[in-house]
Amino acid sequence: MCGPKHLDEDQRKRVADVYNHGSVVLGTDDGVSYWVLVVTGPQRGRVWLLSKVGAYPYPLPEALGFLEWVQRWHDGDGWWD
């Protein structure tokens, strides 16, 4: 993920809001969408994608667990190909 100095104010706020409310930012592919690991509540342990249009589980309709998400990323099995 880009360091905070590379993000504009809106992006820094989005990352801070997510990080401070039950999620850990895992990284970004493009600087405007962020992968987050939910660490509290009913989606705990699931990976979501936070973008300009909102947040949604990845993949739709049910989010992957962290281990499966990492395995897919490592294998190149995802939309980031």
Rank of each mutant, 00 (worst) to 15 (best):
P4S: 08
M1F: 13
G31R: 03
D81M: 00
Q71E: 15
L26I: 03
W35F: 07
E62D: 10
R12T: 02
L64Q: 07
R12F: 03
E9Q: 15
Y58E: 10
L7H: 11
T28W: 05
D10H: 11
M1N: 14
G22F: 07
V18A: 15
G76P: 00
D75S: 07
V39L: 07
G78E: 03
T40Y: 09
D81Y: 10
H74G: 11
C2M: 14
W35H: 08
H74Y: 12
D17S: 10
D77L: 03
G54V: 00
P57S: 04
V38H: 04
W48M: 03
L37F: 02
V24G: 06
G65I: 06
W79K: 06
V15S: 02
Q71F: 08
L64G: 07
Y34D: 07
G27N: 05
L7S: 06
Y56C: 09
G3Q: 12
K52R: 12
V32Y: 10
T40I: 14
T40N: 14
D10P: 04
T40F: 09
M1P: 13
G76V: 01
A16T: 12
V18E: 13
D77R: 05
G31Y: 01
R12E: 09
Y19T: 14
L60P: 10
F66N: 08
V38M: 12
G45R: 03
V25I: 15
V47F: 01
D8Q: 00
R14E: 05
W80G: 01
A55G: 11
R46M: 03
V36P: 06
